[in-house]
Design a protein around this nucleic acid. Structure first.
Length: 495
RNA sequence: GUCCCCAUCGUCUAGAGGCCUAGGACAUUACCCUUUCACGGUAAGGACACGAGUUCGAAUCUCGUUGGGGACACCA
């Protein structure tokens, strides 16, 4: 387990640009970075944009930006290049094609003409019969002629890996030790999709090899596909890197951290005013410790003292409260000048003020009224009280469900703009046979904390998706605490 | 359902067979400091999941049980 690192390691993180930069990415990045620096190696960022359905063009820049803010520097990456570029998988497509072809030639892969519908049906039947779902290797048995015929007929196909049907595949995880899987339990995974893009499995193996990655340090969710990767390395005749699977950050209920239950966007924490060094320290503690009682330590100290032995395997619950405490510790140490600069540069930014002013200026008569009218643009979590969040005649449970549905629609938005937000709300109102006023007041109170505020859609837009999501979730939590049978004519009173 | 991983206070963890009557931190409670609030200080409650074994001795090693998590996509 205490492996000796001889050559300088090359490690990478491989985020996919499918949305906001994720806190889990920062966590994994930190350990990759620290490990690399400890041993004088290189830390690389590679963008895995092979899923064109979930691809969000704005996401890549956001991820790089967020990691930069987080305070760890990469030695090679899509923006700065490096000796093994390009560092974006969509720009490396020929490589994967060639690799897939090579595997077919070596008889380690085959074309699969099964339709998505057939696979779905198959899975359905398997689950119904309580069998583990998996590909039944239907096309593996296809003769060469049959395959050629389908190919000539222009049938769509994927390329699947021919996984050995017997034997055992194992790997030595740097913190878990030897992990073994029976090959018979593995199914023939897709390497190349019908659209010509590779799956993660193919792309990451090909790239890790091409980029001379020595250590793959990634999340625990990859443990069960690692034997497939090992088998791929063998099929190619390449040496596999050393694997390390870190435990996943968890919600309070111990499930894998999710935006439903926690703010997961790095942007949220930046906006909140969490200091990068505090976040790094906190995330480091989610699985690693210096050894004694010291909890506050710098990333440099972590690098100096880093060993995998000090890593613990239990899935750590992400505790916002402790992060806040730790952030406070760091904040207190900062000189006043730093505070002034931070408030000017991060809180009252020109960009943010420019968005807020047009919403406020028509409702005030003197500048001093600005802050009281715009306070909720600058505060974080709001406190809800009373029952004014409930429209007359609706149960709290119902309103919570509204919020949940609207939040879901917000998630699908490809652009956070007033027209799109408006469309979501209006569609929702129409589909549920509500009156506009039914939903406006609850929404307004949820996002601004007050029944008197600037226009709703603009407010939502300016607050930003992360903040709106957070506040609506908190409002939903609050709604759940309201006693169901609300006395009809009770005045709204603080609870 | 199948496979894999994991298991110390509510939470993050220290603990690598005797230093453990299990230590620290967050949170909680009480008191002190204080015009208030906060900070700070002091204190309290609070855990080795269970059962077998190995051993003179087990939180620490082994096995089983239970519990939790992850994976089983033409997503990563």
């Amino acid at each position: 387990m205490n492996q000796v690192v001889t050559a300088p390691p090359r490690v990478r993180i491989a985020p996919s640009p499918t949305g906001d930069p994720h806190i889990g990415t920062a966590y994994i990045a930190l350990f990759n970075y620290v490990f690399a620096k400890k041993h004088g190696g290189k830390f690389i960022i590679r963008i895995e944009d092979t899923d064109r359905n979930r691809y969000r063009p704005e996401s890549e820049a956001m991820i790089l930006d967020a990691i930069k803010w987080f305070g760890i520097e990469w030695d090679e990456g899509p923006d700065i290049g490096g000796p093994y570029g390009p560092y974006k998988q969509s720009e490396r497509l020929p490589l994967y094609l060639e690799a897939a072809k090579e595997l077919i030639e070596k008889n380690h892969a085959y074309r699969c003409f099964c339709t998505v519908a057939r696979l779905e049906k198959l899975r359905e039947v398997q689950t119904a019969n309580k069998l583990p779902p998996g590909y039944d290797r239907h096309c593996r048995a296809l003769s060469l002629e049959e395959a050629e015929k389908k190919l000539a007929a222009g049938e769509k196909f994927t390329i699947r890996f021919k996984v050995p049907t017997s034997g055992v595949t194992s790997f030595n995880d740097q913190i878990r030790g030897k992990v073994e899987f029976e090959n018979a339990r593995l199914d023939d995974l897709v390497l190349l999709k019908a659209d010509g893009y590779p799956t993660y499995h193919l792309a990451s193996v090909v790239d890790d090899n091409a980029m001379k990655i020595t250590h793959v340090i990634r999340g625990e969710e990859w443990v069960s596909s690692t034997p497939k990767h090992v088998l791929l390395y063998e099929a190619f005749g390449w040496t596999a890197p050393l694997f390390t699977h870190l435990n996943l950050l968890r919600n309070t209920d111990k499930s894998k951290i999710s935006k439903r239950k926690n703010p997961t966007s790095i942007l949220y924490y930046r906006r909140k005013g969490i200091l990068p060094k505090a976040l790094r320290n906190f995330l480091a503690l989610m699985g690693w410790s210096l050894g004694g009682d010291q909890e506050i330590f710098s990333t440099e100290t972590m690098i100096e003292n880093f060993t995998w032995e000090r890593f613990s395997l239990g899935g750590p619950v992400f505790d916002l409260q402790k992060l806040l405490w730790m952030n406070g510790q760091y904040l207190k140490q900062l000189p006043d000048e730093a505070w002034v600069a931070m408030i000017r540069d991060q809180v009252f930014t020109e960009e943010y003020l420019k968005q807020i002013v047009p919403l406020i200026k028509e409702r005030v008569q003197a500048l001093e009224e600005f802050i009281p009218n715009a306070d909720f643009f600058f505060t974080g979590d709001l406190k809800y009280e009373g029952t004014s969040i409930l429209p007359k005649g609706f149960a709290a449970k119902v309103v919570a469900k509204w919020f949940s549905d609207i939040l879901e629609s917000f998630e699908t938005l490809d652009e956070w703009s007033v027209p799109k937000i408006k469309a979501v709300i209006e569609t929702f109102v129409a589909q549920n046979g509500l009156k506009t006023k039914d939903i406006f007041m609850p929404m307004r109170i949820a996002v601004s904390g007050t029944p008197v505020s600037p226009p709703l859609f603009e407010t939502i837009q300016v607050l930003g998706k992360e903040m709106v999501r957070r506040r609506m979730r908190l409002a939903m939590d609050y709604l759940k605490t309201l006693k169901e049978p609300i006395a009809q004519n009770t005045e709204a009173s603080p609870s």
